[in-house]
Design a protein around this nucleic acid. Sequence first.
DNA 1: GGTCTGGCCTTGTTTGTACAAGTTCCCCTA
DNA 2: TAGGGGAACTTGTACAAACAAGGCCAGACC
Lengths: 243, 243
Amino acid sequence: MAARYELIAAELRDEILAGVHPVGSQLPSEAELAARYSAARGTVRQAVAVLAAEGLVGSRQGARRIVLGGERSQSFAELHSFAQWARSKGHRVGGEVLGQRRRRAGPAELVRLGSPEVLEVLRLRTLEGEPVLLERTVYASWIAGAVEALPPDCVSVTQGLYESVGLVFAYGEHLIDAVAAGSEDARLLGVRRGSPLLRQRRVTTTQEGRPVEWSDDRYRAGSVAFSIRNSIGANPLTRLALS
Amino acid sequence: MAARYELIAAELRDEILAGVHPVGSQLPSEAELAARYSAARGTVRQAVAVLAAEGLVGSRQGARRIVLGGERSQSFAELHSFAQWARSKGHRVGGEVLGQRRRRAGPAELVRLGSPEVLEVLRLRTLEGEPVLLERTVYASWIAGAVEALPPDCVSVTQGLYESVGLVFAYGEHLIDAVAAGSEDARLLGVRRGSPLLRQRRVTTTQEGRPVEWSDDRYRAGSVAFSIRNSIGANPLTRLALS
DNA sequence: GGTCTGGCCTTGTTTGTACAAGTTCCCCTA
DNA sequence: TAGGGGAACTTGTACAAACAAGGCCAGACC
């Protein structure tokens, strides 16, 4: 995080959040910024590209960049790890492992994880003491041992695995939809059977592209939402038709 | 779309999709690609940055880039416009306007659209003849006339507004969660009251950052899902705690 | 046989330059 | 006064060069 363009991006982001550049206003031109920071125009371009990727500013050829929005997301971890996200937002987060066992991988799991044997873990996560999330996670066998070695009250699995074996979750693919609560979901989350749940299914891989986990996370309705900013020409989210 | 780096990105994307670079394999180095396309290294970097943003490839300093995944999303329109998305995927899409009226903006709408009067439109969209989506959209007053002038059976509002008044939707902010179907939702979508719906609320703005519409879209569960790829260091999606 | 180190390879960062393409806005004209 | 033309400004694209930082591997060493 010592890169020049990241420092400039951070400074501009702070200015935007502080209201120096209000929503709807124009950002200084690249030339002005380059002069202000004594940096080359390319470096400034990299900095504002970061802000554009975050959805903070929009840009069009020929016109000044426009400030689009206020607060913004930061890290990959925030989307990936429930605990890290919750803590960064100042929530009180808890959780416990309800069940854990090794078994043979089903065909779908074999395709996603490339591992004949898997470790299945059922976790309940709480926010401010209220149960909000039920995680059904399946880990590839090569990492199963490290997962089992984690303390049962480990709040952040992501962080735990990083500290114990140096594993870094680097890439993820997520599928988001809505489902009705099954009887187990209902009992554990404290809702009625059939009530709506927000479901996030994801595969996570290491930096080398090796799959680590495949998870089915179900949020109680009204507890959590997903937010995304997009722009013409930069669009990471897609719809998918089911069935 | 005549830019050099876009052409290179398109060619590499095609190669990946065609299996020339299988998932998990290494992409040629920047130097090799630069030589192959007789382009500067910077141009090649821009091209692979596009693929990285799409989640197709991952990269780490020091190591060759890795191919992460297969098919990918394309356009902003795909997320923004239900009709354009459905048609691009080869689905048969239909829809009708169920109600439309002008009224004074509520406080939340005033904040989001900055318009004291709004046009409220209720639309039902179908996929392969089945109702899957109920849209409750509120338009800012300055565009309301153009919306009313659209034919009632207009399949794509986005496209209709572009053709009639040249309006381009450029930026969007989306909030995704799950809700229970209300009685109106249930009747129109053909599901039981209280059954789960996937809700997407969004504000869309023009290129200048002017808000155009604020919409509450509800999908029948099991009909549509949202998909996203992310990576450490590039993460557009965020969780939000509600209440 | 295992481990460690050093060199090579590859990606990341930065600067500088030049031109292309689109926007904005003022001034001039009808 | 309304409209058109054009100059100035701003972002987009492309090239070239150099060094930094981290990964990878083979050969040396214990």
